[in-house]
Every structure is written in C-alpha cells, then in structure tokens.
C-alpha cells in the first residue's frame, strides 16, 4: 500500500524577521493543527519553542548549533524520531512538518538533507521554502548580511513582515527582493497574520500546480543586480526548439559539476523532444537535482523550454553556450555525424 507522503516546508529568514510570529499564527489555524514543528535556535537556550502555542509533543527544539552546520546528524535524526513517534501513536498524527531554521542558517544544506536521505524520502516530500523579510530593517540586513540574501534567493515564497510598523514598503526593498528572486511571490504579513494556505498550503513542486509553474516562469525577467547583490542574480534561458533528453541530462550534469554550490536553485519546464506533449519539470539545489517530473499537459500554448537560474557568480553567457553546444553535439551524434 502506498504511504502518503508528508510535505516538509522550511521557514527561514534573518534574525528577528518574524519567523516565529508567523509560525504561531499558522499553528492557530484549524487546518494547520496537525503540523509538527522543528525549531532550530542558535544559542545555549532555546526560547522560540516556548513561544509556540501548540501541542508540545509536536514541537522539537534543536539547540545544538546552527541547523545548516549539523544538518545531517541533527535534522535527519530528528525527522526520523518524529516519524517513529507518529507511527507509534506517541504524538499527534501530523500531516505536515515545518522546519523553522535559525536566523543565521543557510537553507541550502537543509534542502540537501531533505532531498537526499534515502529513508526519509519514502515518507517525506519537499514543500515550500518560505523566507521572512523585515519590512523595516530588511533593506539594511540584505545589504549587510550575505546569508540573508541567500535566504531570499532560495525562497519559493517571500513574506514581508512587520508591515504594521511602517507606513509603506520602500521601493528599493521591493527592487532588491525582485532582483534576488524574481520568481517568488511576495506576500504581506500584518501583525504576523497572513493567509497560510498561500504559504504552506500547496506543494510547490507538485507539477499539477500548473499555475505555480506559470508564476515562477513568468516572473523571471533579466535583472541587473546592484553592487551589493552582484554575487547573486537570476536569469532565464529559453529554447523554442525541443531539447533531447540526453542533452538535458548532460547539461544538468555539467551545471552540477562546474557550478556546485553557486547554483542556488534551478527550476525549469522543458520541452523534451521525446515527450512533446508532456513537458518535464526540473528542479535543482546546488548539485542535487530531482529526477525530472512530467506534467500531464503544458500550462499554456507556449511550448518554449524555460529554465530559471538563481545563482551566485554564474555567467549567463556560459550557460547559454553550454546548452547550445551540448544540444548540437547530441544532435550530431544522433545523426551519425562526426
């Protein structure tokens, strides 16, 4: 019998950006009452979990250090323990997990751990990455703290918090967020309240969520980063002509091999020559990629392959010529040309 996969969402954001407030609000919603929460704090004494008003047996605080540094040991073990307790009936039969990272955590290793643990993969599926940004202090934080820019860059959703403390969002902050991550919708939280379904309700990586895919593909114009964000930028490459499956595979291999940690996220919808009616959805974090998933149909009449890159120091020109060269070589081999 197939086991229902439990979505795991990651809630991240810099110190004091309102993660716990939003988490508290979410847990008060009836539809989120069966949520297990893993909280990581960077410090000797955990406080955040004391602030969460929910069934205590579903909240676990990790205080051994920053989650991204000890992720393989602590996080995966914690998730295994949670699942064991659920199976034994020792805690509420939760139907989702939210991991709140420390404000200093790099989300990428956390996503790695979730994507590559063999045993967890049979039980869990990666959900949204939600990043909170303080509407008041966010711009200064983004300017000063590289990790905060990375937290924004990998997000599926960005939540602007503390809007009740400011009369409006500075255009420059919006611009900075769009530059770092044009594909992620920006949502607003007032007094920590937000429509939680928009945050954690849908599995972003579910290719059935066609509107979602359309969103992150449509929202990826070319951006010229400011000096401060020069190391992180996003761009989209598009190809009208279908791409052979083996060329796509080689392309992803080359990206993983040469870009490694600089490829923060890659999402794409690809017209694979061998499957023209059912596009492939690709998704990668650094050098870890999901096997392509196949949509039942194209989200629109547009059959163009589009790949959105959020990366650090990766040159668009190189990515473009790499794909062209690989496609041409595969076509040569297929045609029997030297």
């Amino acid at each position: 019998m197939a086991t229902e996969l439990i979505p795991v969402s990651v809630l991240t954001g810099f110190l004091g950006s309102g993660k716990t407030t939003i988490l508290c609000h979410m847990l008060r919603q009836p539809e989120f009452s069966r949520t297990a929460v893993v909280i990581n704090e960077f410090g000797e004494v955990a406080l955040d979990h004391e602030l969460i008003e929910t069934s205590e047996d579903n909240v676990i605080a990790l205080t051994t250090g920053c989650l991204c540094c000890r992720v393989r040991v602590d996080l995966t073990q914690t998730l295994h323990d949670l699942l064991r307790r659920r199976d034994e009936g020792a805690c509420t039969r939760f139907n989702r997990i939210v991991i709140e990272t420390s404000g200093l955590a790099d989300p990428a290793p956390i996503l790695h751990a979730l994507m590559t643990d063999t045993a967890l993969a049979t039980r869990l599926v990666l959900g949204n990455v939600v990043t909170t940004v303080d509407a008041v202090a966010g711009e200064v934080t983004l300017e000063r703290e590289a990790i905060s820019r990375k937290q924004v860059a990998v997000a599926d959703r960005i939540v602007l918090s503390k809007l009740d403390l400011t009369s409006g969002i500075e255009a420059s902050l919006r611009s900075r967020l769009t530059t770092l991550n044009p594909g992620a919708p920006t949502l607003r939280a007032v007094y920590g309240q937000i429509e939680c379904d928009n945050l954690f309700g849908a599995a972003l990586h579910d290719p059935k969520t066609v509107l979602e895919i359309s969103s992150w593909l449509a929202e990826a114009p070319e951006h010229t980063p400011s000096d401060h964000d020069a190391e992180i930028k996003s761009f989209t490459i598009a190809r009208v002509e279908p791409i052979q499956a083996v060329a796509l595979t080689l392309f992803l291999e080359a990206l993983a091999e040469h870009c490694g940690a600089d490829l923060l996220r890659l999402k794409g919808i690809v017209n694979v020559a061998e499957s023209p009616q059912q596009p492939a959805v690709i998704h990668g974090v650094q050098h870890v990629f999901h096997a392509p998933a196949w949509l039942g149909h194209w989200p629109s009449d547009d059959r163009t392959s589009r790949m959105v890159f959020i990366s650090r120091r990766i040159r668009r020109q190189w990515v473009e010529v790499l794909l062209d060269a690989i496609c041409a070589e595969v076509a040569d081999v297929s045609a029997g040309n030297r």
């Binding site: 590559t116 599926v125 599995a203 993983a256 998933a293």
Partner: peptide, 29 residues
C-alpha cells in the same frame, strides 16, 4: 563534458568537481 573537465583540471588546480546527485525524495506528492 570530459573536454571541459580536463581543461579545468589542468588550468584550475583547486578545482574539485561536484558530481551531480539525483534527489531521492520525489518531486511529486
């Protein structure tokens, strides 16, 4: 791909290739 790898290994002594890993967790719920 091996052309690129060989060129980079020669010219970039500190280079360590990241081998692609395919996630075990499914993309689709």
């Amino acid at each position: 791909l091996p052309v690129l790898r060989q060129v980079r290994e020669v010219l970039d002594p500190g280079y360590q290739a990241s081998r692609v890993r395919v996630a075990i967790s499914p993309l689709v719920r």
